[in-house]
Design a protein around this nucleic acid. Structure first.
Length: 508
DNA sequence: GAGCTACCTCTTGT
DNA sequence: AACAAGAGGTAGC
């Protein structure tokens, strides 16, 4: 394995805009693992990250950064990033990206890894060029102190920002000062030490009152273990002063920052959308405060296709196990983090090998084994990821129809893929949960239906699309998260259910 | 075309 | 302990 380095990117992003704890375990993505310290480790395309957050920022540590990537990233993204930002400007209204905008996916830019293998032989020559491109930044020197780059590229529209961007330090002394300054800045400014200690008791979660009365209290109430959040933040402050991180050139930071922003779709202002949906739907308004920052990820389509083929008749835990098996047995080794080896999600060609169906059956995929092997062959014949990406340009209905050609992909899975990796943000995947929610809270006439037939499916998805508009799929995921069993403790602690619990306890 | 059922395996509930 | 039901469905009849 090439020598790999780590660095950290701090993304200014309110927990109201992105809540990792909900977003990463509400069944969109199956590869994020929560560490004992409450952080999240997982992969974004071929990069391995550990993420944590406090109320105002997301801290992202990249584990498998290789300086060998520099040259290609700098050269290949120079144009695409520019064209992307231009497209973003063109397609942005009041901090929101227009749904179905024909934006070039970040995934398309990430083919550099494969190309990288081809030019590895010429690496030395390339690296020399790289230094010229990168300018005066000493990419090969591991700095004594790390500077958390809070560059302008981090500026997300519609997101709250604590600190303004700072000038990059020129000398070691400057760097140290800036680091100190940054650490000071990075602390929970609204929450003093007394708050940090008091916040650990559960009661104070309800009255999380700070100088910022911008309803932080109502947001973070029950669903998050706030003490965990604060603990993890404290730990990150320690991490920032660590010398284990390298100091990559600004272009590289820009590239990876863009990768993160793209993955989390941070160009969309969630708070605006929540307000809009709450106005349209009292039920949403009731549920939303306990489930802030539930955001649709922009995931690699190939990974999504096979992950959701595994999802049929399975719960999230088991889907995660199956996806993990796919990666371990057919993907490439990327790096090791805290003793765990991370594998990339297999490419289509890796899922086309002979005898794969039998192997998958042995691994416990059951009847999904043949779906996976057939779909892999189909994708291989029609252009793999490029074909999937081309579906972004089609109207939603056509995209949906095309996806149904894949064996093992029915209406629900097709909608998951459309919504989570093909930019069709109005797609509503109707599963048993959504069916139950719809019958219970929106369409009582469905209560007599035993199963989700095509007719019922269409009725439910159209209802939600009409109710919520172009980002209906995002709103649906909030309702879906609120209904998930794993978050039921959050619901229990809210409102009347909490009172009922107390009553019952006092009776005993 | 609408509706029913088998399908793999694992977890959860009784 | 043993068994049934259900799990973010789909294909085939």
């Amino acid at each position: 394995m090439a020598s790999l380095q780590s660095f950290m990117i701090k993304l200014p992003c309110s927990v109201k805009e992105l809540c990792l704890d909900i977003t990463l375990q509400c069944g969109q993505s199956f590869r994020w693992k929560k560490t004992p310290t409450g952080k999240w480790t997982g992969m974004i395309h071929k990069t391995v990250w550990t993420l944590s957050q406090d109320l105002e920022n997301i801290y992202c540590v990249l584990h498998n950064y290789s300086q060998k990537d520099d040259y290609e990233i700098i050269c290949e993204t120079k144009d695409t990033l520019n064209s992307n930002s231009m497209q973003e400007q063109n397609s942005t209204i009041k901090g929101k990206r227009r749904p179905n905008s024909k934006q070039i996916s970040f995934v398309d830019q990430k083919t550099y890894k494969r190309k990288k293998q081809k030019i590895d032989e010429n690496q030395m020559c390339k690296l020399e060029v790289k230094e010229e491109v990168a300018g005066s930044v000493p990419v090969n020197v591991k700095s004594e102190t790390t500077f958390p780059h809070n560059a302008d590229v981090h500026n997300c529209q519609g997101l709250t920002r604590r600190s303004q961007s700072k000038k990059r330090p020129e000398t070691l002394e400057e760097s140290q000062n800036t680091t100190k300054e940054f650490n000071k800045d990075c602390r929970l400014q609204h929450a003093g030490d007394s708050l940090i200690s008091s916040i650990k008791s559960e009661e104070t979660c309800e009255v999380f009152d700070t100088k910022d009365k911008d309803n932080v209290s109502t947001i973070l109430k029950p669903v998050l273990a706030i003490s965990d959040l604060v603990d993890s933040c404290k730990e990150d402050l320690k991490d920032f002063t660590s010398s284990e991180y390298c100091n990559p050139p600004p272009k590289i930071l820009e590239y990876y920052t863009q990768l993160l922003k793209s993955y989390f779709r941070l160009d969309v202002s969630l708070q605006d959308l929540y307000a809009e949906w709450s106005e349209k739907d009292p039920n949403f308004a009731r549920v939303a405060p306990s489930f802030p920052g539930v955001r649709m990820l922009d995931q690699p389509p190939v990974e999504n296709v096979f992950s959701f083929i595994c999802s049929s008749n399975n719960n999230i835990n088991r889907i995660s196990q199956l996806v993990e098996k796919l990666c371990i047995h057919f993907g490439d080794v990327e790096c090791e983090v805290d003793g765990k080896v991370w594998h990339s999600f297999p490419r289509v060609e890796q899922l086309c090998s002979s005898g794969i169906e039998a192997k998958l059956r042995d691994l416990g995929f059951g009847y999904r084994a043949s779906y996976i092997s057939q779909s892999a062959l189909f994708l291989s014949s029609c252009g793999e990821e490029a074909w999937l990406n081309s579906l972004k340009l089609l109207p939603y209905e056509e995209c949906h129809q095309q996806l149904l050609k894949l064996t093992g992909v029915g209406p629900k899975v097709a909608d998951c893929i459309s919504l989570m990796s093909l930019d069709h943000l109005g797609s509503i995947p109707v599963d048993t949960h959504v069916f139950q929610i719809a019958a219970r809270d929106y369409l009582p006439e469905l209560r007599t239906c035993k199963t989700v037939t095509a007719k019922v499916y269409a009725k439910i998805s159209e209802h939600f699309r009409h109710l919520y508009g172009p980002y209906a799929g995002w709103a649906h995921s909030v309702l879906f998260s609120a209904d998930l069993k794993k978050f039921s403790s959050a619901k229990q602690k809210t409102g009347e259910q909490k009172k009922e619990k107390k009553k019952q306890q006092s009776k005993v």
